[in-house]
Amino acid sequence: MSVMMNDLVTVQRTRPSRLRFRATDITESNDIEVEDLEWDVPAGDVAQTLAARMELPTNVPWALRNDQGMFLDDTQEIGAQIEQDARLTLTPKAHLG
């Protein structure tokens, strides 16, 4: 039996079943440990979920940045973009001008 995954990630049975990482918001007022998410959920959904957990407004779009400042691709699976125990920052998608 196989579980169909999306194109970027192949199923790695050796890795833990759940992803674990630490997330803070841009102001560092919230710092949470996340260890219940699946590897193949889109990063955009993860960002909105973290906003809800941090009790931040969920009617605005959020994005995730890794510890090198790069934005994760909302549409791609988070497991393809970060390693276990990564540190992420939740950032509002602000468009100026």
Binding site: V41, V46, R53
Partner: peptide, 10 residues
């Protein structure tokens, strides 16, 4: 704050 994936089991 809950997020789940629907798996396509094939």
């Amino acid at each position: 704050g809950l997020l789940w994936r629907i798996a396509v089991v094939s």
